[in-house]
Amino acid sequence: MMTSATNTGSRARGSASLKHRLAERGVDTKLLLLVPAIVFALLLFVYPFAYGIGLTFQPLAATQEQWGGGLFANYVAFFRDAFIFDSVWITLRLALPAALFNVLVSIPIAFKLRSKFRGKRMLQTLLVLPITLGTVLTAQGLLIFAGRQGWLNRFLLENGIIDQPLQLVNNYLGVMLSLIISGFPFAYLLISSYLSGIDPSLEAAAKTLGANWKQRFRRITLPLLAPGLATTFILTFVLAFSVFPSARLVGDASGETRVLALMAYRAFSEQLDYSMASTIAIMMGVVELIVIAFVFLGRSFLYKGSTGGKG
């Protein structure tokens, strides 16, 4: 059977028209469907991105004078200027724990919500609802609820539970809360879909083989879920890493939440230094890529094949 099929194939290649041969390799008029996407990508991503990279090599004279390095003056400044470079750590200190928290907390909730129970739909809606709020709305809500004069502090003060208002916003904690509120629904939705892709009969099988719930989770579910967790971590990390509005609105923009996006914005709007702003933006991408590379390196050691479920 196999040989005869291959023979027909090679004979066809000999006599078939060019059009047919191209179609066999996926080259046909359907490729035109890709044109809008390619035009968009070129105009709105590739060109501006390349232009931005170009800008980074046109440092202001002042930058060149202060940091040297000629064309690379912006990059020298980025690494040498502690005020800028510390921002990398500040951003990572927010984005990594926020992403980790969102992933870890989503796991048990996704687990629980896999089974059927009363009010499940309601709970799911509540969990996913914050996705519809913009970051600005979330920040505003946080300020009203948890600010120094917010409902929470007023309630606690008036009932004598505390005698000093709690400092929940305009600092690291405020931004962290906003990152969790906006990032958690993503993490939960992704993880629950990964989890529903794992065939429930695998757990049943492990059960009949004598594994208790801890063993079942550690030996069966977690290894099958891990690639999904890594992907989810990366997505929520990227969301958190580019945090901007909440860092300004509910953070401490000149101190502990002086994130890279803010630095780039400042270079552009306050110092009118396009080239430095571009440099910071490019370096944001580089830092993200490094973290993603690490996660994918770890993920490459995991089993990533079929998990037998409804996918």
């Binding site: 099988a205 492990a206 009949t208 083989l209 004598g210």
Partner: peptide, 20 residues
């Protein structure tokens, strides 16, 4: 008794082999 304490072996219709 919970399933894991019954000491029964089970063969599933879809085999339910651990894919990893």
């Amino acid at each position: 008794l919970p399933s894991e304490k019954r000491d029964f072996g089970m063969v599933f219709q879809n085999y339910a082999l651990f894919p990893h």
